[in-house]
Nucleic acid binder design. Sequence first.
DNA 1: AGATAAGCGAGACGGTACGTCTCGTCTTCAT
DNA 2: ATGAAGACGAGACGTACCGTCTCGCTTATCT
Lengths: 198, 198, 198, 198
Amino acid sequence: MSAAAGAGPRGPGRPRSRESWSAILDVAAELLERDGYLKLSLDTVAARAGVSKRTIYRWWPSKGALAIEAYLAVAADRLTVPDTGSLREDLERYARDFVGLLTETATARTVAGLVAASFDDPELARAFREDFLGGRRAAAGEIFERARERGELRADADIGAALDDFFAPLWYRALFTGAALDGPYAADLADRLTAAYS
Amino acid sequence: MSAAAGAGPRGPGRPRSRESWSAILDVAAELLERDGYLKLSLDTVAARAGVSKRTIYRWWPSKGALAIEAYLAVAADRLTVPDTGSLREDLERYARDFVGLLTETATARTVAGLVAASFDDPELARAFREDFLGGRRAAAGEIFERARERGELRADADIGAALDDFFAPLWYRALFTGAALDGPYAADLADRLTAAYS
Amino acid sequence: MSAAAGAGPRGPGRPRSRESWSAILDVAAELLERDGYLKLSLDTVAARAGVSKRTIYRWWPSKGALAIEAYLAVAADRLTVPDTGSLREDLERYARDFVGLLTETATARTVAGLVAASFDDPELARAFREDFLGGRRAAAGEIFERARERGELRADADIGAALDDFFAPLWYRALFTGAALDGPYAADLADRLTAAYS
Amino acid sequence: MSAAAGAGPRGPGRPRSRESWSAILDVAAELLERDGYLKLSLDTVAARAGVSKRTIYRWWPSKGALAIEAYLAVAADRLTVPDTGSLREDLERYARDFVGLLTETATARTVAGLVAASFDDPELARAFREDFLGGRRAAAGEIFERARERGELRADADIGAALDDFFAPLWYRALFTGAALDGPYAADLADRLTAAYS
DNA sequence: AGATAAGCGAGACGGTACGTCTCGTCTTCAT
DNA sequence: ATGAAGACGAGACGTACCGTCTCGCTTATCT
């Protein structure tokens, strides 16, 4: 969350306006959900947030950077890391939450836009991978690490590979095939991973 | 390839220009490779192909439809379906070819753009799934079907699931993590699938 | 009137829209009168004329070029060249008309803006001198030339100098001192010039 | 120099900073010469003078007010009132100096910008007329008044009219026609005025 | 010696305009 | 009737400057 970082001991000068900052993120999240990333216009964000375009560009280097931050602020609540004491159970719960996010919100559309834009903007690509993907992988990673501490994981299990095996099919369905993403699928995915890595 | 279909017995008037048609596709493919889908401009295509924009819009309903057709025309050559008599070997060869396509051309960038645009254009979404994805899956599907005929596949093997397991991690790496896509990875993927489904 | 020039035998392509063209000039003239040149905004012209900004920029290279053309179209009617058979009388009538233009319309404000902008735009400077000033000087020049044909002018009279002597004090009052510009002043100016050059 | 006026018995609080004040004027004069009035930006002045924009606006009500003051401070040196004992000689010298100012510096550009801006700012118009024009006219007026004291002027000579006759053609050339402003022209102007008023 | 108060550099802010770009449609002329 | 040329309305882009505002700090005068 680059721009929001730290605050810390500011120098002189008028401080960043909290009202503007949160209005921008709120409006961006709302329009992202409604119009998708590709059709998101910073002109419109500025107008609806009652803010100057300059203010947006002062704090976010690109539409993508704003979209990532806006989206994360919203999505953070929806995805909590479960800790039931069972790998199988944790995976299923997390997969269910994730599937819900993908089907009930415009997450897939937003992410598709961000991925596409990332190919034209290295800084956006970095932010997307670190902030967006990294956050998700870290969360799901905890599930596997706790399983390892409990001795549930087989000795040679590679958590990185497990995370790939978890996310790849979900995103593939969400972005490519449009195949069902529902509770049973989440359960099935959890089963397969548990079988493979424990 | 809907737009090119049939011609049929037309009435009077100037016949459709074959030169224009192929010039448009050639230029589109070239610009797609150079600029990516998002930055592809039909103004530029028209200018470089010596063609009116009107003509483009007459035959293709949208930028995406043109891009799919232009891309398929080029990519078709690169991906042939191997038939070595061994599932393991066929899968590795096909995976190698596919990985080569992803790393040596702007395929990933193009596909990312098409996926993103598909969320705003149902007809494009349909064309993408049927022409683009469907073609790939049919090709790779042959590999599994031949293996089944040879008795290489286990009885309960679900070819649809196998195709998901094959493509999902490749696209996930190409679009999301940026992790290595090379010969060893292709071999590893072929190994894993062979183990799982035979 | 660069952009309006000649028409001639056009090639293919959609022709320039007469509606847009005249709407732009009308709105520009209206806003020029209301807001002055400096505060004239092409965004506003476009919006009120129901026209794309692109269309304005297609036909006029700058705000100044549009302003000159818009203004001339309006001012043309107000300044006719009198022909009474008397230098003194012609000068007074033309001076009165000109003074009327300066006091009853925002001409001075517009011209001040154009002059200022001319220093940053050589092409505008050229257009201003040729189209705007040149037109005025040609008109007033006719008065002196007819006087010369009638034998009213002294042998060594320099018409260029006479035009300077005519316009310089009018613009000086209009732009600098703000001193009275009225009927008596026009008469006085006509007297002085008649005395000096006949 | 309105803003510097009077000081008087101040209350508590920090006094105005002389360093900032003169840095602002210096930078403004420099940028005025380089960029002209229209393109002069107070953001840039503030940055280059190491000063807050707030400080500029505290002491000058507008860009124009600052520009007038900055310009006068510089131009004052260049125009001294000659006193040779001869109207003809004094006029020529003053005209030469003035012509030099107009041709060697960006005076005309600056003045054009101020005149244009004056139409949108009555206070600027007042300052321009009183401080800028008034100063010039007072200086040149001395020449005529001394000539009158010496008995060189004809009895009915109107000094105000003479000043108009002196400045009007100079500004007209400088701002409108761009015709030559040089030594010979200055001499000719001095001749004509001397002939007309003595 | 405090207290009070204004000036100051820094710089964020809402607003507005700039000039350019692309989209998808529309209009003409020439074939 | 088709097609190239290319104008059109719409509207987003990212930048610039305006004049105002808010900060934390400094420097004076007044108690």
